[in-house]
Amino acid sequence: MDSTTRFSGKAEGYARFRPSYPEAAVEYIRSLGIGPGSTAADIGAGTGLFTHVLAQCGCRVLAVEPNGDMLNACRAYCAGDNNVEYVQARAEETGLDAGSVDAITAAQAFHWFDKPKCRAEFKRILKPGGPVIILWNILRDDGEFASEYKKRNGKYRDEAMIRNDAEDFDAQRREFFGGNFEKTRFDNTQWLTRAEFIGQCLSISYVPKEGESLFETYVAEMGELFDRFQKDGRIELRYMTLVTTGRFPD
């Protein structure tokens, strides 16, 4: 499946149920000089979860997203952010002017990019010395729930996701930046009801969509998982927000 279409039909659930990003991560991004008077391109903006967070820094934000469903959800999610502009384009060919942005961000999206083409495009649109900031909310592998959750979802992964999981991301990012990069970690927690938990599960790119084979089986399986681990009608998801920051050498 083309990476630009695999989230079609999942935008609403993604926007409603995926976790946002902790305030400590926002403060870290501000410390890199991203604020009023600067322009940041949020590449692979999706439904705008991080675009909205980035907009709170006061910078001009260019939300770049190839999937029409996701970009429309981004417009709705960031409707109150007057400093956000929307661009339907791929990471590898943004259409932005050369040297037009002070920083680039990519949240939950970097693994979908064609790295060599994307690197050339990032270097083209980024002002010299500007940071590239890559973020992931990663479910902590610190208990029986996380282990069971990953095991059950793992049965539905497609070839692209298996390949992504097998990649050495440190080596990949070192090659991407042409040298060193920095990693910063922040705690992030989300509490979900049963409906919210199942909704979040259904926003995963590779799980069945409604009407597809195994959809009802998957929903029942995730519902059983929730019932097993819930406390007072909610379940706690503990994440590590990993922020990778790098700059291209001159």
Rank of each mutant, 00 (worst) to 15 (best):
M1Y: 06
D2G: 06
A11G: 13
R18I: 07
S20A: 07
P22E: 12
V26Y: 06
E27I: 08
I34N: 02
S38V: 07
S38L: 08
S38C: 11
G46A: 01
L49T: 01
Q56Y: 06
C57Y: 07
G58N: 10
R60L: 06
L62K: 02
A63L: 01
M70D: 02
C74A: 13
A76L: 15
A76S: 15
N83D: 06
A91W: 07
T94R: 13
T105R: 12
T105W: 10
A106D: 02
F110W: 14
F110Q: 07
F110K: 11
K115V: 14
C118H: 04
R119W: 10
E121W: 13
K123F: 09
L126R: 05
V132H: 05
I133M: 02
L135C: 09
R140Y: 04
S147T: 14
Y149W: 15
D158W: 07
D168C: 02
E175K: 11
G178L: 15
N180T: 15
R185K: 14
T193R: 04
I198G: 05
C201L: 08
I204P: 00
S205P: 01
E212G: 12
E212Q: 13
L214F: 14
M222K: 04
M222I: 05
F226L: 07
R228Y: 10
F229K: 07
K231I: 08
K231M: 13
T245N: 00
R247C: 11
